[in-house]
Design a protein around this nucleic acid. Sequence first.
DNA 1: CGCTGGCAAACA
DNA 2: TGTTTG
DNA 3: ACAGCG
Length: 514
Amino acid sequence: MKRRAPSDKSTTDEECDDSDEIAQNQDQDDNSSQATLSESDLAPAEGGGDHSGSGINNSTIKTALIPLNSPSLNQLATSLGLLITHSDIDVNDVIVKSECLPNKHKQQHAHPSVCHHWLRDSAAAGRILPIALYVLDDYNPNNSEDGSDDLPPNPQSKNACFRIHPLNSPNEHLVHALRILKQDRVARDERWNALAYSRAAAMVKSFPHRIRSKDDIRLQLSYDSNDTVHTKNIGEKKIRAKIEEYLNYGRISEAETIQNSASHKLYNALCSIQGIGPRRAYELSRTGASSLGELVERGSITQEDVTLAQHLELGIPRTEVSSIAGVVMENARTLLPHPTHAICGGYRRGKSESNDIDILITHHGYTLQQMNEFLANLARRLQDMGFLTKLMRQLSLSDGHSDKHDYQSTLLGVVASSSKYGTTDSAQVTFRRVDIIVCHPHSFHLEVLAWTGSVMYERDLRAFVKRRNLKLNASCVYDEHTNNEVDLSGIRSERHLLAFLHLPWIAPENRNCD
DNA sequence: CGCTGGCAAACA
DNA sequence: TGTTTG
DNA sequence: ACAGCG
């Protein structure tokens, strides 16, 4: 999820393999098939049981999986005072499917297994909890029973979250020109004009065919009662005039002028530096300086910042995104057994090159404090091994006194990516932006939705749910007036969540609105 | 014509 | 508080 | 020098 992309060259399409998008329990240890749970394993999640203070370690949970048909499942349940009936387990809700497991464990897990946290939490609650809550890897966007509730997309909607925005538009030049104009309005601090150009660009991007004439636009238009043409987000006066200029002359002169101006180039370069946004970039770009180097000499910016920016501007190939995520998860698993994770951001939207790497991690049965501690330990571990070279900002740890589910902690950092860590490029080290987010399992699908983007998709998503008096952030949905949190524990997938919010299912690869 | 336009949280 | 960030 | 809606 990247906000700022002044020279946003759209990347070429590539087959989107989502097999590694959601991964769970990928490296089972050899004990995992034995359903042997100690007393402490089954202590309620809250309070940390008898391993209080020691934080998270490997012995906290020895066994993650219990085969569904094993006698030990019922034995365990009975010993906990629980009686599992047939209706308690929906086969479709089963936790680990055999294809998710590494080969060496295929045999042992030939039949579906359940996550023992389900039993433990049920014991704590004194009743069998819905097992769907413990299923996180249970969705496949393209073939899901959850799809039965899908609403159809609406190409004419003014909201981007109702439309299809593929990675590559047949009108890429026009979209690019509109984005130049948007950039310019941002630079001039004309916020609402800039927003209008963003929306117009997104609208054009949702057109499935190349626009050659006004009639081509007509095909996408909504018709009012008089059957007069009107495309949402493209007003009758200003922006339409620009598009008509483009149709007539193949360019928008204002955009050309802006793009060729030296100050705009400097402005863009400044914007790509961490900590410099539109405001400072605008101020610095009109101090008379003509290059970044000059500004470094004056001491306005540091060479270090400029060099880092040059690294971060380079796109990250998909293979490198997944191998960097692999390094992070490999280390995560030494601190937290069997985490569930998803790689979000541009990677999930199918971009062949990402700006950064967004990794979302969740886990059943861990408290807020434990997950915060896990993230802090992970940061330290990655720093110690020299992989994580910089923290962009302090770990934002949610406060430990809230008993709500709306916790989320984020780590924004920079890693040194090299061949050692699976980079395609040899010897050379490249710095890459990485975001690691830990969240509560109840809000996992919501977090996936929020961290997948694009920015415009999120914006319109929130605008839409607001009309139904709901507020939505990355970790919870709540009523705007009563502030009551909406219970998301029954949400099985991102797709299910969108249906729940009365929104159409738009595949991640079609959320490339900006 | 007048109002809205996504949003929270961390820096400086 | 305004700016920057995801 | 934006656009939609009430």
